[in-house]
Design a protein around this nucleic acid. Structure first.
Lengths: 207, 207
DNA sequence: AAAAATAGCAAGCAAGCGCTTGGTATTTTA
DNA sequence: TAAAATACCAAGCGCTTGCTTGCTATTTTT
């Protein structure tokens, strides 16, 4: 039985070790899925929509992904990997803590709002639609992400630059930042840079 | 042709003029739909799920609602009407502005997090799945809701109790509050009262 | 008491869904 | 250069979906 060889899911789509979406057909599917999931939601997006968006027959997408769930997981993993990389880089900068906070706010808003960055918004909106087995595969990366914010905000509270307890501060700040994904429009008059400066200024207690 | 008379959609389900869900069969459908839409999302919830939840045949729900979209609109309208009533009552109280802010934060968190209040969370999550014609019917109520927060926060900024410009403050605060709907668990150790006090304290600049 | 309105049930239809299958052209490896 | 792997296409299968239809039992109105 010469069964067709399908590499289906264990497949690198990177260049020089760095995650680089859209480098091949599989990456195109992930990007198209991310865009459509963000626009219409996971459940309301059909696998035909996604295949059409990259000029494929609807069944052909299942050569690259075993299921629609695996595609959703790939979208979120792309977002988490890219976001964690950007965030780690900012955290490693030798900056005064208030400046680091401003840079982190700007970076997080970039991850959420910059054109083409649909991955994390999909995760924020459709995390509940991802089956538990796929969630587990992402939680480690997700925790690494949160840890950076945990450390950053704990230090800001200790320095008296944020009010209240660290947990309330973290949940409030990340809630406010994440919620921008639901209302921010690229052509809405305010740039990401400006929004980041204003929001950081709203939270920080300058001394 | 003795066409069956179906009152479908123009139908009051109130008692003594006050919106009182679950008072009749139609109200039961709205509440069941709200719970299921919140748990699984609008698109992933079937009309059979909803009918089953109230012990109806799947087709019978369409005696009360012309379409699944009308059911979604009814869920959101129930949330907006109830939320606006609670919010207006708080705004009318003769309180010092900082106390009024604390009361508004508590009320808003109640609308989002109290058991059985699934309506506004559905609106926050699935607003994008509502067809434009239904959106327009809700926007007036939605604006009345926002106006209260607009006035409240403008006054707080003028009084020096909130930092930054009023728009940034409003978007940040409402973002932080609304995002609690995605992570708050009733059995998560912290009560709504406590959370409200902490979040209000995080935002306010006490003088 | 007749008529009409209310609130369903039982059955099912057409369209759309995720996914599978058998095959093929091209590229890569042995 | 033969064999194997890659990256699809064309067709369609079985199931689920929102919604419709014809009918009936009960309550309300005239």
């Amino acid at each position: 039985m010469p069964k067709a060889a399908s590499p289906n899911s264990v497949k690198r789509y990177s260049r020089k070790g760095l995650t680089m979406a859209k480098a091949n057909r599989r990456g195109e599917l992930v990007c198209a899925a991310a865009r459509l999931f963000r626009e219409k939601g996971y459940a309301a997006t059909t696998t035909r929509d996604i295949a059409d968006a990259v000029g494929m027959q609807s069944g052909s997408a299942f050569y690259h992904f075993a299921s629609k769930q695996e595609l959703l997981a790939a979208v979120m993993e792309e977002g988490l990997t890219g976001g964690l990389a950007r965030t780690s880089e900012v955290m490693a900068r030798p900056l005064p803590i208030a400046e680091k906070f401003r840079a982190m706010v700007r970076t997080h808003l970039g991850i959420l709002l910059e054109a083409g960055n649909d991955f994390i918004p999909v995760m924020l909106h459709d995390w509940g639609r991802l089956e538990p087995v796929y969630k587990q595969r992402l939680i480690a990366t997700k925790d690494g992400y949160d840890a950076h914010w945990h450390d950053l905000i704990a230090e800001l509270v200790r320095a008296g630059l944020l009010a209240g307890d660290a947990k309330t501060a973290r949940l409030s700040i990340l809630g406010a930042l994440n919620f921008t994904a639901t209302w921010f429009k690229v052509d809405g008059g305010v740039s990401i840079d400006t929004l980041a400066r204003r929001m950081a200024g709203f939270f920080l207690r300058e001394t």
